[in-house]
C-alpha cells in the first residue's frame, strides 16, 4: 500500500499544471524511494520525467512498487479542490483501482476526502542515457518563460546557440524576427544570474510550442537548467526541494 503525506498540496497542483497539457494519462510509479512519473506526449517528440523523493514527504510509506495509472485531467480537477497550503495525504491499497486524497486545512478542522478512479496504462518506459552535454545554461526560470513566450509570438521555432559570446535565442518568423542574447553574469550566481558552461559550440532548433509548455514549471523553481548537445534532445530541468521535473525535447532537423 501507499500512504504519502505532503506538507502542502501546492507542489502537486503545480506539477499537474506543468504536465497536464503535454500528457493525458500517466503512471505514477511509487516505490520505497518515492514517486516517479515518465511520460511522452502523443507525438513522441517530448518527454516529461518527474521525481518526488520519499524524503520530501512529511510521512511516506510504500511497501512494494505500485503503479498508479491516472488520468491527468481528472487528477487536476481533484487537486483543484485543495488549497495550496492544505496538507495533502494520498493513499492507495495494493491492487486497488481507487486513489484516495485527503486535504487537511492548516488553520481549521476542515478535512476533505476525495476518491479518484485509477486506470491500467500500458506505456513504454524509455531508457534515457546519462549524457555529457556540450553546454549547460542555468538561468532564472522567469527569464526563460519570458524568452519563449516572447519568441512564440513571432514564429514556431527557436534556434538556441551557445557560444563564447553567451546563449542566444533566435526566432525567424514570416513577418518578424528577433533574438535575445544572455551573457554569463560574472557578479551574480543563480537564481538571479546566468551561468554558462560550454565544451563545444551548440546550435539547435526546437519547437516553441513545447518550450512554452515546459516553462509552466517556473512555479516550482526559480532556476531552470538547459542542457544541450548537438543532434540530441534538449534537457530542461527544474529542481525543487522535494524532487525535480525534467523535460526532453527532440531537436528539429533541417530538410
Amino acid at each position: 500500500m501507499l500512504e504519502a503525506r505532503l506538507a502542502e498540496a501546492a507542489i502537486l497542483k503545480r506539477l499537474l499544471d506543468s504536465i497536464k497539457e503535454l500528457v493525458t494519462d500517466a503512471n505514477f510509479e511509487c516505490n520505497e524511494e518515492g514517486i516517479n512519473l515518465q511520460a511522452m506526449d502523443n507525438s513522441h517528440v517530448a518527454l516529461v520525467s518527474v521525481k518526488l523523493s520519499a524524503s520530501g514527504f512529511k510521512k511516506y510509506r510504500c511497501d512494494r512498487p505500485l503503479p498508479l495509472g491516472v488520468n491527468l485531467g481528472s487528477f487536476t480537477k481533484v487537486l483543484k479542490c485543495a488549497k495550496d497550503d492544505d496538507v495533502c495525504i494520498i493513499k492507495a491499497a495494493d491492487d486497488a483501482d481507487i486513489l484516495s486524497l485527503t486535504y487537511e486545512a492548516r488553520n481549521s478542522d476542515r478535512i476533505a476526502e476525495y476518491e479518484m478512479k485509477l486506470m491500467d496504462i500500458d506505456a513504454d518506459t524509455l531508457n534515457i542515457p546519462d549524457t555529457d552535454y556540450d553546454a549547460r545554461v542555468s538561468m532564472p526560470s522567469a527569464e526563460f518563460t519570458r524568452i519563449v513566450r516572447d519568441l512564440s509570438q513571432l514564429g514556431e521555432s527557436v534556434r538556441i546557440e551557445v557560444s563564447k559570446e553567451g546563449v542566444r535565442f533566435i526566432s525567424d518568423g514570416e513577418a518578424a524576427n528577433g533574438n535575445i542574447l544572455l551573457r554569463q553574469t560574472d557578479d551574480d550566481a543563480p537564481p538571479e544570474g546566468v551561468t554558462i558552461e560550454m565544451n563545444q559550440h551548440v546550435n539547435l532548433t526546437f519547437s516553441l510550442k513545447y518550450l512554452v509548455n515546459f516553462a509552466k514549471s517556473s512555479t516550482l523553481s526559480n532556476v531552470v537548467q538547459l542542457m544541450l548537445s548537438n543532434d540530441v534532445p534538449l534537457l530542461v530541468s527544474y529542481d525543487f526541494n522535494q524532487g525535480h521535473i525534467r523535460y526532453y525535447l527532440a531537436p528539429k532537423i533541417g530538410d
Binding site: 531508457n127 532548433t205 528539429k252 532537423i253
Partner: peptide, 14 residues
C-alpha cells in the same frame, strides 16, 4: 521546413 524525429530514435525502450 524543419521537422523532428521522435524521441524513440534517441532513447531506447527499457
Amino acid at each position: 521546413v524543419a521537422d523532428q524525429h521522435s524521441l524513440d530514435r534517441y532513447f531506447g525502450a527499457k
